[in-house]
């Protein structure tokens, strides 16, 4: 069983996100270790990109901080290789298609395997274009995580049928970022997915409070939190390890109660 499948076996999963290299790679490494200890079941690591069109202001700024601090794809791979020896949690990259394409697709996925990356989430690679990466993902056994959105409707079945790893259910319209209220009928989305696949579904976009995490984990297989964590990192910088760990612990507890 893959590390990703395993992450969903012990009940509802809590998935946390961190932008690689924000504020620096050393801190990212410590954050990954601390988040695993605090109970994160899967960790997404953002490869910083100059133009992250699916991100709200909080993660955009994290991307800018990481890039100006000198984070590159190679340096991030090196850090991940190191941290992989310390953690067993599944690690998934979140990035845009251009950094992967420009790095060289074959080389990129080869390094994913070497460094212990289990999957990739690419927000600007929809179902119709997934063959761009599918061959290399299959070749190297890295899961290409599919996203479904509130507007997917008749597309859900098609996407879910071919999903690998887990399915990322986008809770809301728009970009990433903390939201006080999420109106989408997540239940309906999840039941459509359930009709065609057993792949686990985790809900993300806009979740920041334990109540929201509990609510969405109760109707799915897990909750994904990004901007709320990145916000803590932007506030505390290198000293964010403890506050982030405390936050993850609280969120994980909420998810387990779901």
């Amino acid at each position: 069983m893959s590390r990703i499948q395993n992450a969903f076996k012990q009940g509802k999963a809590f998935i946390s996100f961190v932008t690689g290299g924000d504020p620096d790679l050393e801190t990212t490494e410590k954050l990954i270790v601390a988040m695993e200890e605090a109970g994160a079941d899967l960790i997404e690591i953002g490869i910083p990109f100059s133009d992250p069109i699916a991100e709200g202001a909080v993660i955009q700024e994290a991307n800018e901080r990481a890039l100006s601090a000198g984070c590159t794809t190679d340096k991030l791979f090196d850090m991940v290789k190191g941290v992989r020896e310390k953690v067993s949690v599944p690690l998934v990259y979140l990035t845009y298609i251009n950094p992967i394409y420009t790095y060289g697709k074959d080389k990129f996925f080869k390094r994913c395997v070497e460094c212990g990356i289990d999957g990739v989430i690419v927000p600007d690679l929809p179902f119709e274009e997934k063959e761009e990466l599918e061959v290399d993902c299959l070749k190297y056994g890295v899961d290409l995580i599919s996203l479904i959105a509130p507007t997917s409707n008749d597309r859900v079945r098609m996407i879910a049928e071919q999903a690998t790893g887990f399915i990322y259910c986008v809770s809301s319209m728009g970009v990433t970022g903390v939201r006080s209220e999420i109106k989408t009928d997540i239940n309906a989305m999840i039941s459509m997915v359930r009709e065609v696949t057993k792949a686990p579904c985790a809900v993300g976009f806009g979740i920041s409070t334990p109540e929201q995490a509990r609510e969405f984990a109760s109707v799915s297989d897990g909750a994904i939190v990004g901007s709320a964590i990145v916000k803590i990192i932007s506030q505390y910088g290198k000293d964010s390890i403890k506050p982030v760990a405390d936050y993850v612990r609280e969120m994980k507890k909420a998810v387990m109660e779901a």
């Binding site: 069109i53 600007d124 996203l147």
Partner: peptide, 11 residues
């Protein structure tokens, strides 16, 4: 091609 987020695909 059509490299946009899933949210925009139906649009």
């Amino acid at each position: 091609g059509q490299y946009v987020p899933e949210t925009l695909m139906n649009a």
